[in-house]
Amino acid sequence: MTALANGILRDVTLRDGLQLTGKVLPTERKVEIVRELLALGVPELEIGSMARPDLVPPMANTLELVAALTPEELERCWVWVATPRHVEKAAAAGVRNFQYCFSVSDSHNRANIGRTTEESLAAMPAAVEFARAAGGRIQLCLATTFTCPFEGPVDPERVLAIARDPRAEGSADIVLADTLGQAHPGQVTALVSAVVAQGHWGTEAHRIVFHGHDTWGMGVANSLAALGAGASVLDGSLGGLGGCPFAPGASGNTSSEDLLFATRPEWFTPAALAALVPISERLLAELGEPNRSRTAEGSRSEAAAFEWVIRRQP
Score class of each variant (00 low, 15 high):
A5Q: 04
L9G: 03
R10A: 06
T13K: 01
R15P: 04
G17C: 00
T21V: 00
K23C: 00
K23I: 13
T27S: 00
R29P: 00
V31K: 09
E36I: 09
L37M: 10
G41P: 02
E44H: 02
M50T: 11
A51E: 02
P53H: 02
D54P: 10
T62F: 07
A68V: 01
L74V: 04
R76K: 14
C77M: 03
H86S: 04
K89S: 11
A90K: 06
A92D: 07
A93D: 03
N97K: 04
C101V: 15
S105G: 09
N109A: 01
I113F: 05
T116A: 02
A122E: 14
V128F: 03
F130C: 08
A133I: 04
G136C: 06
R137F: 13
L140F: 08
L142K: 12
P153W: 10
V154R: 15
V159F: 12
L160T: 10
R167Y: 14
G170Q: 05
L191T: 11
A194H: 11
A194R: 15
V196Y: 03
A197V: 07
G199V: 00
W201V: 01
H206R: 13
W216V: 14
M218C: 13
A221L: 06
S223R: 12
L227K: 08
A231D: 04
V233S: 06
L234T: 11
G239R: 10
G240R: 06
G243S: 07
T254M: 12
L260T: 12
L260M: 09
L260F: 11
E266I: 06
W267L: 03
F268R: 07
P270F: 12
A271M: 06
A272Q: 11
A275E: 15
P278K: 02
R282G: 01
L283S: 05
L287F: 06
P290Q: 00
N291G: 02
N291S: 10
S293Y: 09
S299G: 14
R300D: 02
R311L: 01
P314Q: 03
